[in-house]
Nucleic acid binder design. Structure first.
Lengths: 154, 154
DNA sequence: CAAGATTGACCAATCAATCTTT
DNA sequence: AAAGATTGATTGGTCAATCTTG
């Protein structure tokens, strides 16, 4: 019974920590590179996908975002020449996104800074602490019909 | 060095867990009560504040949100008669928000369901697990000039 | 018709500019 | 002038409707 309340407290802590760190990383990205964290996420997903690129649908899945959102968020990246948007010749319905050279170069710089910021945020964590945190987070039960329940992004 | 990567993995897990659970709770609130999680947060903050209510500025602080956002998110709640918005007679610049009777009644129902959902999400956690998770989350270091660094919402 | 992507309308949040009151 | 709140423009996200292609 009071366990319910403690679970709610843990939930509020989780939301608070995640929000605060996300805001801080987003602000740092904008200040240093003029790009939001959401756009960085696109670059990161495409970098992992390699020179093959990703279909719009798959990109949306990896970003855990709707397809409409993917269309929107990639548009300015394409305009800036960081991402290339090509139509699949085999199936003209599908659009493939892939990192441009310029996008790759920018991503490398952004990712390095990102690692630094995150390492600093977790500087008080031992490797065991990190493992424990990740284990606990993976123990959270997502309601059955929940959006993105069961997905695992590395 | 590989510790940096692990910290990033933990960070991605944190963001993912928080996002997924938030989406699920938001969807449930909308389906069952027609209110978003953000509006529920307003009701919760005002309920804690009691019949005194809260100045707009203080409400924004508790919600960890800008004042412009507070103005926007409270507006439909006031229209629906869930929140009362009164001008402070002592200082006509300040606006005070407080829960209406109707808002109180709705909040009680929403909070009960909220506890149920969260308890279910954390059903695999022992009290010790909960405590460990909260301890670890509080160990995350927010960059100095970061928005809302040092704030603590219970 | 079904699948993939885009569009349009809306909600939530930010910031900068403004207006009112002290 | 400075403080409190609102407004307007912009970004990110959702969903439902549409358009194109298979």
């Amino acid at each position: 019974m009071s366990g319910d309340r403690d679970a709610v407290r843990a939930w509020l802590d989780l939301l608070g920590a995640s929000n605060a760190l996300k805001k801080s990383v987003d602000a740092a990205f904008r200040a240093e590179f003029g790009l939001s964290i959401s756009r960085f996420d696109v670059l990161a997903a495409l970098e992992r996908a390699g020179r093959e690129g990703l279909r719009a649908r798959d990109l949306s899945e990896r970003l855990m975002v709707t397809e409409g959102n993917t269309t929107q968020v990639t548009a300015p990246l394409a305009v800036d020449g960081l991402v290339e948007r090509v139509s699949d010749p085999d199936d003209k319905r599908v659009v493939i996104y892939r990192l441009s050279k310029k996008g790759e170069r920018l991503f490398v710089r952004m990712a390095a800074r990102h690692r630094e910021w995150i390492a600093r945020a977790f500087c008080a964590f031992s490797p065991a602490h990190i493992a424990t945190l990740r284990k606990l987070l993976s123990t959270i039960e997502l309601p059955a019909g929940s959006p993105a329940a069961g997905k695992d992004a590395a």
